[in-house]
Every structure is written in structure tokens, then in C-alpha cells.
Amino acid sequence: MTGAEAANALFVATILTYAAAMFAYALEYAFDKRASKAVGEKELVAAGNAVIDRGTSADSADSGAESAPITPSAARGAGRIGLVLTFLGTAALAASIITRVVYTGRWPWGNMFEYTVGVALAGMVTWLVLVSRGTVPRRLGLFATFAVTMVLGTSVRVYTEAGPLVPALDSYWIIIHVTAAIAASGILLIGCVFAILHLIKRRYDRQVSDGKPIRFPLNIAERLPDATALERLTFKIHVFAFPLLTFGIFAGSVWAHFAWGRYWNWDPKEVWAFIAWVVYAAYLHARVSGKSMKANAPWIAILGYAVMIFNLTAVNLVFDGLHSYSGV
């Protein structure tokens, strides 16, 4: 097996492992009734360093449990397996990237496929850090693995054989600039997931307080943590990622000076990075601009990630600019 084949095999293993993890989380999410609405508000409250869901009440004799295909404790076991699988899948993904590095003898961010895989890794690592610190309940891994698996699935569509780099990319700035951009994109991916979860939960809460019936898909929100806690976590993730994004753009601009002779060219990639940055700055402002604006803030965060995705996909594939390194 060549290095490229090994990298690809590990890549496929990652996707399969994540898919299995997603299934395990789904079991926990659906059948561990412990942390459902039976639990009092208190446990859902973010206190101190934010365990947003403690789920301490041992309410396993929940009436729903009898009709459920598996018991709550089995569901929790599934969740633990899901977490282990997530760690394994992430290790396989990292190994796949390292294999590529060894095989190509260069830094692994040379084309759109590699970039996308990097974003997936960064997103999953972010998630695992949050779970390990107890900031988020394990069962929400369902949404994180789903988002990351989607990213990996997208990367397959732009798969490129591992090859050498064009001269403009042959610089240590690639490490600095692209790593920062990848890390920011991965963290923001998780931030976007939480923004969406917050909006779902908020909607759910409103339906409940209006006494309206809850239908699919809103009923999944029943098991989500408190809407306020979700919103604050969304904010914290964005606050962490924003300086990274800023630094990534800054490093890109320094690199552009050396590679293209001009620190800012209004090349489509730069235009859209600028737009994303401005949208995220708007998000940070929206959160402190009064109640009604704060309510809109999660939408702005999602808009920000839509811009990021657009910048990665459409700008690489459709627009014609200096950043034409996608290799597709």
C-alpha cells in the first residue's frame, strides 16, 4: 500500500467510525430519558464554568423507558461508546493527515480537499475539548459528528491526489495562514452548530409556552440544554474563534505581500474573507446592541458561517482569482 492509499484508507475509516458514533449518540440522545424534561430547571442551568447539563436526577424509572427499545442505562452506554468512537475516528483522521504529510513531504494544506479535511479535524477537536472539559453534554455529539461528517463528505467531492505545491504556496506562511484559517473555520463550525441548536430550542420553548403542539423536527429540541446556556456557549466559541480568524486574514495579507507583491488585492477570496470578518464583527456587536438585536445575533452567526462555506466552495470552484489552488 502506498502512502496515498494508506491515507485514503484511514480517511474512509474515519467516516465510518464517525457514522457509527453518530448512531451511538443518537441512541443516547433518544433513549436516555434521564436528562429530559423530567429534570428540573436547576440542572440545566449553566453555573460556574458551565456544565450546561448535569443530569443528576436518577430518573431512570421514567414511564417512557418501558416502551423504549433500550433502557436509559444502555442508552448511556451507547453514548460512552459514541464518545470512544469519536476519539478513535479523530485519531484516524489525524493519522490520515500525517500519512499524507509523510508521503508528500510537505505541509498538508495544499488544496481544497486537504483544507476541508483540516476543517473537519479542527471542528472535531474543538468538540472533544468541550466534552472533555464538561462544558457540553456528551449526547450532543450527535450534532457535532453530523456536522463534521458532512464536512468530510463534502471534501470527498473535491478529492485531489496528494501532489506537490505550486511555487506561491511554497512558503512558511502557508503553515501560519492556512492553519489559522482552518482552526478558525473548524471552531466556527461548532459555534454555528450551537447557534442552530439555540434557535431550535428557542423556537421549541416558545411553542411550549404558547401551548402549541410540537412536531418533528422540533421535538428533538426537547432534549437540548437550556436556550440561554446554548446562546452563551455559542458566543464563547465565537469569541474564541474571532481573533484566530482575524489573525488568519492578517497572516494571509502578509503572505500576499511577499507572494503577489500586494498585501490586499480584492481577490474574490479576500473579498469573502473580508465579508466573513465583518459579519462576525457584526455578530459580536449585535450581542451588545440591545435586546432585539441580541435575539438576531445567532442568525448573524449562521450568516457568518454561510459566508465561510461560500468562500471555501463557490469562491474556489466558480470564481477566478489568485487563490486558484483548489486543485479541482
Binding site: I275, V278, A282, H285, A286, S289, G290, M293, I300
Partner: peptide, 11 residues
Amino acid sequence: RTALLLLLALA
């Protein structure tokens, strides 16, 4: 609020 709208308008 205006700053926010101007930021979005700039984008």
C-alpha cells in the same frame, strides 16, 4: 445599532 447595520451593509 447603526454601527451594526453599517457593518452588514459594508459586507
